[in-house]
């Protein structure tokens, strides 16, 4: 066991990790931050996405010891300081961009990374960017809508025939 120290959501936290301890396991089991989920073991699904030193990564495919000393942002660190939802989180609720909620933390973290690099993405860019995040519930329509809305674009009427 080796001591690993991370700055997680602005707080310095330490724990013990084996060589094989993944960042996702370290966050969930050692630090008790269970918002980061694990949905596959082949680095496909993206439920485990967190930001390490500002970059979105799949925490199930990063060794905890390999990022010792890094700054990590997880879904638990996304809300505003007063506890209210951040713009991207609020957009997911407003546009029903989640159902079972399991892929949601990774989706939100991945979408947040996109908007940082590309503040006004097109629909095609959003869809392409989310290729590393699998959702089985929503059919993606409302996720894409939420990300577009969070970027300040008008999404009224998208795909709703009755309106």
């Amino acid at each position: 066991m080796t001591k690993v120290t991370l700055t997680v959501n602005g707080r310095s936290l330490s724990g013990e990790a084996e060589g094989r301890t993944l960042l996702s396991s370290f966050l969930r089991e050692e630090l008790g931050l269970t918002g980061t989920h694990v949905g596959c073991d082949t680095s496909q699904c993206g439920a485990c996405v967190v930001h390490v030193d500002g970059l979105a990564v799949k925490s199930c495919t990063v060794l905890a010891q390999d990022v010792d000393g890094a700054s990590v942002t997880t879904i638990e660190g996304m809300a505003n300081a007063d506890g209210s939802l951040a713009t991207i989180q609020q957009a997911f609720q407003d546009h029903h961009g989640l159902q079972c909620g399991f892929c949601t933390p990774g989706m939100v973290m991945s979408a947040a990374a996109l908007l940082k690099d590309n503040p006004k993405p097109t629909e095609a860019e959003v869809r392409h960017h989310l290729e590393g995040n699998i959702c089985r519930c929503t059919g993606y329509h409302n996720i894409v809508k939420a990300v577009m809305a969070a970027s300040g674009q008008d999404v009224s009427g998208v795909g709703i025939a009755a309106e």
Partner: peptide
């Protein structure tokens, strides 16, 4: 036997949907 071969639809595999229940 894994998502490497079982093709799950991703965001860029599907379109926007027009849904009506009127």
């Amino acid at each position: 036997g894994s998502f490497m071969d079982y093709a799950m639809p991703r965001a860029d595999d599907v379109p926007n949907y027009k849904v009506d229940h009127s």
